[in-house]
């Protein structure tokens, strides 16, 4: 087996274990209410931060704002809050960005 394959298998293991252990172990536990509540805040927080990191990055002691992403998100947010539809929102978002890429 060459070295790259060994590296890939190592990467696979260290990626899989953090994905699997908490899920399998914690789903069996009876947790105190405040810990369950703590977990409930995680999805919205992660969603928001992932989104924020798409809009803003930090390089060489400067914030960089991706203005196309911000502009494309305006019609997207509008459709998202009006329709609450995943598909419609994503199609509008892709179209908005496609138009911005042409400009």
């Amino acid at each position: 087996m060459n070295e790259i394959v060994v590296i890939i298998i190592g990467m696979g293991l260290v990626t899989y274990i953090p994905r699997m252990m908490p899920l399998v172990i914690i789903s069996k536990l009876e947790l105190p209410e405040y810990i369950e509540l703590w977990f409930e805040f995680i999805p919205v927080s992660i969603l928001t931060i992932l989104l924020t990191l798409n809009f803003i990055s930090y390089n060489q002691s400067n914030f960089n704002i991706n203005s196309n992403m911000i502009i494309a998100s305006l019609p997207t947010i509008l459709v998202a809050t009006k329709t609450k539809s995943l598909i419609k929102t994503v199609i509008v978002g892709i179209l908005a960005m496609a138009i911005l890429n042409l400009v």
Binding site: L51, A72, S73, L86, T89
Partner: peptide
């Protein structure tokens, strides 16, 4: 923009 748009939609739904 497909994934950012999905995050926006999921936030709106949730």
């Amino acid at each position: 923009f497909a994934l950012p748009a999905m995050f926006i939609a999921l936030l709106a739904i949730h």
